[in-house]
Amino acid sequence: MQVPAQFRYEKAVSVEHALTLLGRYGPESRVVAGGHSLIPMMKLRLAQPEALIDINDLHELAIISVERHVLCIGALTRHADLLSSALVGEHFPIFHDAERVIADPVVRNRGTVGGSLCQADPSEDLSAAFAAVRGEAVIVSPEGRRTVPVREFFLGPYQTVVDPGELLVQLRVPIRSSASAYQKVERRAGDWAVAAAGAELVLDDGVVADAGIGLAALGAPNFHAREAESFLVGGPATDERFAEAARIAAEHCNPIADQRGPEEYKRHLAKTLVTRVLSVARTRWHGLHSGEKAR
């Protein structure tokens, strides 16, 4: 039986309290929310935090709302709640696409959005989805709050800009007229991605006005494909241009070989998946704007 090493346990009753506890226990403490990465790592003794600060009672961090044209997702929002939120689905179907293929219902019932981002696993789907739609992370500390673009949130695998003593409290995505989609290749339901891609498109009379492309498990810097996005903007939303954007995305990502596949295959998937999600996003755009002339 796997059992963790000894640790202290504290239950935070407010965000302020959580920050106080983080200050008291210092860098060797860890925040626990859903615990679906941390607890298994502790049981395997890959992680041996001295203290766990449980934020599961901070219900104010589990709210999904729209404030002044910004979709606000509390960091403690469970995957299942993100998936069942009509508000989220209406504005950013990319999140529903992603949530449908994140782990399994048992994990989704407990795992949280903020926990997923803070874990910063290179294969994390929501990191790619938030990167695609250019979300922002709201981080608080005893000194106050700061907002960091998700595209600047990650410092590397398992590393984020959230300092010890800080707490991620919310993800924010400005709402605009757009269409988005997410797809993932996995070896089995619930497996981490072999590769995954998400896209957001804003079209204007058949021309790409804005584009976001998120990549997971592909070694893309900060989970997005900047060069491919730049290529797309200003050009027509055609299959050919999508394919070229996908080729650029595949060229600029940096996947590593593991038991999910060789590097070459993962680059191939980057190309395939980027093409597909752009195409789905375009179809959704036209679905939303059926009055307009298709392409």
Binding site: V185, R187, A257, D258, R260, G261, P262, Y265
Partner: peptide, 21 residues
């Protein structure tokens, strides 16, 4: 696996018992 199928199609089948490099 998806990778093994793709590799077979490429004519470079994987040695599935060893680490993929």
């Amino acid at each position: 696996t998806p990778a093994a199928v793709w590799s077979a199609v490429q004519g470079r089948p994987l040695r599935t018992d060893l680490a993929i490099t």
